[in-house]
Computed example of a mutant assay.
Amino acid sequence: MTLHAVVRAVRGQFELSVELSAEPGHVVAVLGHNGAGKSTLLDCLAGLLHSPETSVRLDGRELSLLPPYRRRVGVLRQRPLLFPHLNVRDNVAFGPRAAGARRRQARELADRWLAAVDAAELADRRPAQLSGGQAQRVALARALATDPELLLLDEPLAALDVDAAPAMRGLLRDVLRTNTGRVTVLVTHDPLDALALADTAVVLANGRVVEHGPTQRVLSAPRTPFAARLAGLNLVAGEAVEGGLRTADGALLHGLHAADTEQNSPAVAVFAPSAVSVYPRDGRVPGSPRNTADAVVAALEPHGPVIRLRTQAAAGWAGGLAADLTPAAVADLALEPGTPVTVVVKATAVDVHPAWPSGLARGPELPERSGQAYS
């Protein structure tokens, strides 16, 4: 089923304007900060929010003219929202029964889907007897039992603990790959979910699409601040020039241009926290580094086996950088919030890409301070 949706909706002062397309069997990850319009988009696709300017076409069939129960759309939210008075089997059978299936047929279908999500042994339990991971498996079976042509997943793993989430992620991957005709739209804040489950990624900001493309590309070479933060990378906005990126204050950040980067056009420089070295402000910086700037330590946070240092600066590209240091290095340098430092970024680790879309780095739709970094 090919999906093509043009969504226009207004909620109070918020306006959503998104165009979304997907081929049969594809999974589209929708990413964005809180309030970007992700849940509003899903509500429009499901028919829970009606807008006369919205068109949702699924394999040529116009869904926007149909009530939600006739759209063949399945929805899975963060919370399972199972009916507490029904056992698991009857929860899953509810959709087929509502669609006109006989009781026996609906229960047989429910048992098949419960087996598919590895929850067959839970059929006779009530929702109150389930763990969070078990309840979400049942909710997934219920969403799939109606054989939806469009499946909407709204942060399906966000409420699960660290032990249940990987198993549910693996289950979703298996279920989504076994149906090559269904289109799935996944809303998530987790880059691992997007990378593991989605073919393409769409980044929303203020109700507009600001970045889209293959998931791997969006997260490995982000062109917007939010995507960079999500991927755990630093991003500096400016203009592509020979040798790297010219920031708003006139500084040159040396780096390597991507193939599609055009000279003197809006661009972003992207680099990992591991590419940032930190030295005492008045200390000697070894070698002759080209990307050097002064900053102040803003925060120190445990980040797995390393300490993630974040900077602030009154001006220039060094404000808002993230750098990963070993605990020993932090101790040796006596670093703490407020410590003046010099940061050095390895030029060969800086990739310069076109901003998305053209002019975004200085555009009004996604406020940011040109020349500042995000991670």
Rank of each mutant, 00 (worst) to 15 (best):
L204I: 09
S220L: 07
G244D: 06
L171R: 05
E211M: 10
A167M: 03
A159C: 08
L150N: 04
L245P: 09
V203W: 00
V183R: 00
L233Y: 06
D163S: 15
L245G: 04
V183S: 12
H212C: 13
G133H: 05
A164H: 09
R177S: 15
G132K: 01
T224S: 14
A135M: 05
A143S: 09
V185H: 00
P191E: 01
P166A: 14
P148D: 03
L153S: 08
A196Y: 08
N206R: 14
D190Y: 04
A228T: 09
V183Y: 12
A251P: 02
A158T: 03
R137I: 02
N179E: 15
P191Q: 01
L130F: 01
A135K: 02
T180D: 14
L176Q: 03
D147Y: 13
D154L: 11
G132A: 09
L150V: 01
V210F: 07
V236F: 07
Q134F: 11
N234R: 12
E242P: 10
L233N: 05
G244R: 06
P191L: 05
L153C: 02
D174H: 14
A143L: 01
R177P: 11
Q134T: 10
L235D: 01
S220G: 05
A248Y: 06
L130I: 10
A128L: 12
A159P: 10
A145Y: 05
R173A: 15
T146H: 00
L150I: 07
L160D: 08
S220Y: 04
G170S: 14
G133D: 00
A194P: 08
A231I: 06
A139G: 10
A205N: 15
L195T: 08
D174F: 10
A139E: 12
L153A: 08
L157Q: 00
L230V: 15
V241E: 03
E155L: 05
L151D: 01
A231Q: 07
R223Q: 15
